[in-house]
């Protein structure tokens, strides 16, 4: 009797072991891992991933931590990366990672249709990154302040997004460094909190943690739809309005384990995706699709457009640390 019970238990455990190993191996091999940003959560979870899964049967796991942390996680992987793709709000880490040998050059199927400011420079094998969506950098503020406060004479609390953790912080730094470093220093002096991502940044204004910040139009519209009390406009500095395109770009990890990685990137440029991006408050990169409802009407006469040369990432990156409070 005792031996019979032990034999049954051994068989149950052996079956459990076999089933568990098979399933875990299948999950590990069959899942596409995407490192991305919380700003894209709704666009990816409600539109892109379900449709990609329906079209290909591929499971997708989205990993949301800050861009800096994800880059470090990639570095820790050596030649055995966990992630297949990076979908981020700035190409800085893609440029930096390419220089370090972590990303592969590639070319999408609709290469010719993507405007030149939404594609990286050409390298052997294609491009380092392509933008699939964009959103204007927005000055977000407490509506009680009245008109859009001029950043040159800011005299209220500011939320300077963390430049080493958040892509939002990178855009804020680049804006001030390219327009007025003095205004940047002033904004930093008025900073009370450094949010670690674009969503936390807008929420900071909504919950009264600070009065003004630089965030993304798309994320601001998302929270406005949910009833957040914030106002926004293009950044204003010295009486001048600026258009800074925040470009959500895709990069492909070198040694990526999942063969569907390239298919996922191509999927982002399908009409069914590009035509629906504005539903999630971002803007399509391919021409001919509508802008998000409630978004800033563009193009706007008299606005200065700032596009960055991301290939100069070392210079861009060298300016980031001085915008860390207490850093």
């Amino acid at each position: 009797m005792r031996n019979k019970v032990l034999s049954i238990a051994a068989l149950v455990l052996a079956a459990g072991l076999a089933l568990s190993l098979t399933d875990l191996y299948k999950v590990q091999q069959g899942t596409l891992v995407v490192y991305t940003t919380p700003a894209l959560r709704d666009l990816l979870e409600s539109l892109v991933v379900p449709r990609f899964h329906a079209a290909t049967g591929t499971d997708v796991t989205l990993v949301y931590v800050s861009a800096g942390e994800e880059y470090n996680r990639l570095r820790m992987s050596g030649g055995h990366p966990e992630a297949d793709l990076f979908l981020h709000a700035s190409p800085l880490y893609l440029e930096k990672g390419f220089a370090a040998g972590y990303f592969l050059p590639f070319q999408i199927g609709r290469n010719a249709s993507v405007p030149p400011n939404f594609v990286s420079r050409s390298v052997a094998g294609g491009h380092l990154w392509y933008a699939f969506a964009w959103s204007p950098l927005a000055q977000v503020y407490d509506p009680q302040l009245g008109a859009t406060p001029d950043l040159a004479s800011l005299d209220t609390t500011f939320g300077f997004p963390h430049p080493l953790l958040s892509n939002n912080g990178i855009y804020a730094v680049l804006f001030f460094e390219n327009v007025s470093a003095a205004a940047g220093a002033r904004a930093l002096a008025h900073t009370v909190v450094q949010p670690a991502n674009a969503r936390a940044n807008i929420l900071g204004v909504a919950d009264g943690a600070f009065d003004v910040t630089l965030g993304y139009e798309g994320v601001t519209l998302f929270y406005l739809k949910q009833g957040a009390r914030v106002a926004f406009d293009l950044p204003v500095l010295g009486g001048q309005r600026f258009l800074v395109p925040v470009i959500f770009s895709a990069g492909i990890v070198k040694g990526h384990p999942n063969p569907m990685a390239m298919d996922f990137i191509d999927f982002l440029y399908r009409d069914e995706i590009q035509s629906n991006i504005s539903r999630f408050y971002f803007r399509a990169v391919l021409p001919g699709f509508s802008d998000p409802p409630g978004g800033i009407p563009l193009p706007e006469p008299g606005t200065v457009v700032l596009n960055y040369d991301w290939s100069q990432w070392r210079t861009l990156e060298s300016t980031l640390p001085k915008y860390v409070v207490g850093g």
Binding site: L13, A14, G16, L19, S20, L24, V27, D59, T61
Partner: peptide, 23 residues
């Protein structure tokens, strides 16, 4: 939602493997 119940399944699968190896 598979993304939500998946971790529960993973937990038990890993626990079964660990029990067998530990035995």
């Amino acid at each position: 939602q598979p993304g939500l119940y998946g971790p529960l399944i993973r937990s038990f699968e890993i626990a079964v493997i660990v029990v067998v190896f530990q035995l």
